[in-house]
């Protein structure tokens, strides 16, 4: 028996919104420690890794580990019908063929029940090695969204160059070019608005703009985002979710032929 209850539907809505455009279907791996999802986009350029820790749920029970193969679009559509403050309980029998969803309004005067058919998702599980990153940039997630959107009007790849002085995002396209530099915040009252740049070694890497734009749509998950860059490893973009876990996006770089 698997059962997980979140107090507020809002967080699940945000999580599903952040992954469902990149990932069509995936296996929710449910175990005693929580729920995780790992899935690549259809072109196998990026990978989403989601972790929802059991402590982040109001109630959590998972007697034995199970894989729930889910169409993310279908799940997203159903969860969207819940009120933001509704409690949501996900459930599945050990050998069940559906994922049950129960929404309860705060006044407990409305209860909605849905079932989604489970599917066989043939997803390769990839091992993500612990990487040594040369650069870690923390910045407001809204700023990251703005920058990627602005540069996407010009070019289909973005060069991210980082030194201890700042991080530069630049692009070139048929119509011209553009670049945006962010400097480390000198003093900020609000931690979440800060730009913090940690550099072991300066680095310059190119990435496909459209994926950065996709990732940056997760801004609702956290006011801050971290970009982790290293030579010879994919970019890792992380949106932490307080006690709940995280959504991480990995993106393979563009390499010189």
């Amino acid at each position: 028996m698997f059962e997980a209850r979140v107090a507020q539907a809002e967080i699940l809505k945000k999580i599903l919104d952040s992954v469902r455009e990149l990932v069509e279907q995936g296996n929710l791996d449910c175990s005693g420690t929580g729920i995780s999802l790992q899935a690549m986009d259809s072109s196998h350029v990026s990978l989403v890794a989601l972790l929802l820790k059991s402590e982040g749920f109001e109630r959590y029970r998972c007697d034995r580990s199970i894989n729930l193969g889910i169409n993310m679009q279908s799940l997203g559509k159903i969860v969207k019908t819940a009120g933001n403050h509704d409690a949501i309980t996900l459930s599945s029998e050990d050998k069940g063929d559906v994922l049950g969803l129960m929404f309860e309004s705060t006044e407990q005067d409305k209860v909605s029940n849905y079932e989604i058919k489970l599917m066989d998702v043939d997803a390769e599980q990839l091992a993500i090695p612990v990487a040594e990153y040369s650069v870690c940039v923390r910045m407001p997630s809204a700023e990251f969204a703005r920058i990627t959107r602005d540069l996407s009007t010009i070019g289909d790849s973005v060069l991210i160059s980082c030194t201890k002085d700042g991080v530069q995002f630049s692009t070139t396209g048929d119509t011209g070019s553009g670049s945006i530099v962010l400097r480390q915040s000198s003093s900020v009252d609000d931690e979440k608005k800060a730009v913090v740049i940690e550099v072991q070694e300066p680095i310059s890497l190119s990435f496909a703009t459209k994926f950065l734009v996709q990732f940056s749509k997760s801004a609702a998950l956290n006011e801050s985002v971290t970009l982790n860059l290293g030579d010879g490893v994919p970019l890792m973009v992380e949106y932490p979710m307080k006690e709940m876990g995280y959504v991480r996006f990995y993106l393979a770089p563009k390499l010189s032929n």
């Binding site: 196998h44 990978l47 390769e124 091992a127 496909a208 994919p234 990995y250 032929n257």
Partner: peptide, 14 residues
């Protein structure tokens, strides 16, 4: 001109 690498060339099957 740069080519797009695949994520599977960095992360192997577990």
């Amino acid at each position: 001109k740069k080519g797009q690498a695949s994520i599977t060339s960095f992360f192997k099957k577990s």
